[in-house]
Design a protein around this nucleic acid. Structure first.
Length: 653
DNA sequence: GGGGTCGGGTCCC
DNA sequence: TTCCAGGGACCCGACCCC
């Protein structure tokens, strides 16, 4: 690109400075006439609202870069030498963490969605094809990529680039099915493999290499070949390296249907890294690349170390640390802790409108979708965020934290409407709703509950045809947890729940609530205690008041003894757990025992307290609460490197 | 000053 | 003809309250 040039330049080739993600080199796009693609994308975008917004963003980025250059220029040599000392110390510290004992493999399916579609419709073979629609493409096959068509490109531009392009609508159920097949293969090599998405995974193949006396390359060959045969022809690419960051870079090198192995040897890694463009690193996107290149002259990973003092001078410590570790070829080598979802959202794009009635009906639709998804996952949350994209592509978000956890579409819509009304009048093309700040107590019992829920869903649904192993593992990989991890996690949470329960009882006694609030609270309590499985049952009964009462009593037994009817059905609350779920059944029995103890101790009126309410309550109690481990902001458990980089705040400048 | 919250931004698939 | 998605994570600065 023409770095110094403004987006409003008078060049005879204005498209050259119109940088979109579509012009980046991607696998399969080597022979593409880049300039032609760039020109067509530019011509089709020019003057549009989208284009104007891109220009606005570009201008902001340039401003940021200028600002950084200024600050760079103001650094004295003594500043720099001080920062260099910091770098030297950090290099030593980071080097000390280098672990060359592991062998990581990153598998990435080749043009996954497109390949699946071709598999189910062989007539598409050899023809340029894209999965998606005229507004957006999810992925394109390699024939289409030759024309410059690629993922995240609007379909109407793709069609211009490739008039014969065939569009196939997205069908996630199909991709999930094939993804499951690949995961069956991965599990044989690493039962705790990390699923990055439907089409990629990280496997720690250290043990399998050692046990079978095979090299990483041989295992990679074997896995790729198994994936191909198990799926009936889907190909994938693999990268093998000492850590996940490098393995991911490697899997892209010989794409498609190839592999690349980077030896676990420091000097080999340093050589590899030395010329590696920073954009190849996961987490360094378009913006970060430009900032590093244009403001600091950093183009390769090696430059990150060479210009370390500038990085520590201009960026926050965590960003600088990440850059430096990239420069040293370091990455995660551990199998990460469980990663649970932090938010759930739903959004829809439509033809821009300022019509209040239309917008409110869209809002209601989205609230309904979100509520449905939350109920499906047994989640309740208390922070609602409204996202709007205006007709001019400006993105706004407005959030509100509620008094209590909810998942009801009425609650969501009520608060979302307030947020939206405050923004009107405005022409909007997208509305999104997100719920976050989940009920933590529920969250702690989530891991095993996911499995339980699955069981119940399967039992309830005659349409389900997945076998148990498949669906369980699909769940596990979604939350990045192995079955073992889920169990241990669940056990750990058990005591917490009981302690929590006792505290909630005490706190509840200090409040007065309306019957309606009590009902809602009961709903939360049920989740705290038993997870979404019982909640589901409870909700089913909710429409019928008398049934609800019966249910509420049945889940709060006093002194009965638990018996597993037919080996799987709890006589006390009716929850169903397969006989093979020995530990879950035991855990469930423990729950009833705890409940009995609690009832004996505090009497029957118990209900949780919303977090906000708890804060208002006596500090003593709040403090005595077992503190949940708050994830460290620089937590190493993240297994997918996603970073956003911020410069240090503008101190006195 | 620390923690919580909100809003904007970046990145990934 | 059609005119730039949707879901999720994380980071940071600013602001507010205690």
């Amino acid at each position: 690109m023409d770095e110094g040039e403004s987006s409003t330049n008078n060049s005879s080739r204005p498209w050259e400075s119109y940088n979109t993600v579509f012009t980046n080199a991607k696998a399969g796009m080597e022979g593409v006439d880049k300039e032609k693609v760039q020109r067509i994308v530019y011509e089709m975008s020019k003057g549009s609202k989208y284009f104007q917004n891109e220009e606005r963003k570009e201008a902001l980025m340039k401003q940021k870069i200028e600002h950084m250059r200024d600050r760079c220029a103001k650094l004295s040599s003594s500043d720099l030498s001080n920062y260099q000392k910091v770098v030297d110390r950090r290099v030593l510290e980071l080097e000390a963490t280098r672990d060359l004992s592991r062998v990581w493999l990153h598998v990435d399916m080749d043009a996954f969605y497109a390949a699946v579609e071709t598999l189910s419709n062989p007539s598409l073979k050899g023809k340029p094809m894209a999965v998606g629609g005229l507004s957006m493409i999810s992925t394109a096959n390699y024939e289409a990529r030759k024309f410059g068509v690629r993922a995240a490109m609007p379909g109407f531009i793709a069609r211009k680039l490739c008039p014969d392009l065939i569009f196939v609508p997205v069908d996630f159920s199909k991709y999930t099915h094939y993804s499951d097949l690949t995961r069956k293969v991965f599990r044989n090599y690493d039962p705790n493999f990390i699923a990055g998405s439907l089409d990629e995974a990280y496997l720690d193949i250290t043990e399998v290499c050692r046990e079978r006396g095979l090299s990483g390359a041989e295992i990679a060959e074997e896995i790729r070949s198994s994936v191909q045969s198990e799926t009936g022809g889907l190909t994938c690419s693999a990268g093998v390296a000492a850590n996940r960051l490098l393995a991911k870079v490697c899997s892209d090198i010989n794409k498609p249907n190839g592999q690349f192995v980077l030896q676990n040897d420091r000097s080999t890694i340093m050589t590899f890294i030395s010329s590696l463009p920073i954009r190849k690193i996961g987490g360094i996107g378009k913006v970060t690349e430009h900032i590093l290149k244009d403001a600091l002259g950093i183009k390769t990973c090696e430059d990150m170390v060479l210009k370390g003092s500038l990085l520590y001078a201009l960026f926050t410590q965590s960003s600088a640390d990440f850059f430096l570790s990239v420069g040293l070829g370091l990455g995660k080598t551990d199998t990460p802790e469980a990663r649970s979802r932090k938010s759930i959202s739903s959004e829809r794009t439509f033809a821009a409108t300022g019509d209040e009635r239309l917008l409110s009906s869209k809002l209601a639709e989205i609230a309904e979708m979100l509520s449905h998804d939350m109920k499906k996952e047994g989640l309740t949350a208390r922070t609602l965020t409204l996202k709007l994209k205006t007709a001019s592509f400006e993105i706004r978000s407005r959030a509100v934290s509620l008094q209590r956890y909810t998942c009801s579409s009425e609650d969501i819509l009520k608060h979302a409407t307030k947020l939206l009304k405050a923004e009107l009048p405005v022409s909007i093309r997208l509305i999104g709703l997100r719920m976050s700040q989940f009920n933590e107590e529920t969250r702690h019992s989530d891991p095993s509950q996911g499995t339980i829920t699955k069981f119940i869903v399967q039992k309830d649904s005659s349409k389900q045809n997945l076998d148990d192993n498949d669906s369980f593992d699909w769940d596990a990989s979604k939350t990045c947890l192995s079955n073992d991890e889920r169990l241990s996690f669940s056990y750990a949470s058990h005591d917490t729940n009981y302690d929590q329960l006792k505290e909630d009882v005490v706190e509840y006694e200090e409040q007065s609530v309306t019957p309606e609030q009590e009902c809602k609270k009961k709903e939360e309590k049920l989740q705290v205690l038993e997870g979404d499985a019982v909640l589901r049952k409870h909700k089913e009964c909710k429409s019928d008041t008398s049934a609800q009462k019966t249910e509420a009593v049945s889940v709060c037994p006093q002194m009965e003894t638990l018996v597993w009817v037919d080996g799987y059905k709890c006589n006390l609350c009716g929850i169903e757990l397969p006989p093979s779920f020995v530990e879950e059944q035991q855990e469930h029995s423990d729950f009833h025992l705890a409940q009995r103890l609690q009832n004996e101790e505090s009497g029957p009126s118990s209900s949780p307290t919303p977090a906000s309410k708890r804060r208002i309550l006596g500090k003593e109690k709040a403090n005595s609460k077992p503190k949940k481990q708050k994830p460290n902001k620089k937590d190493d458990s993240k297994h997918i490197p996603i970073h956003t980089f911020f410069t240090k705040s503008n101190q006195n400048s």
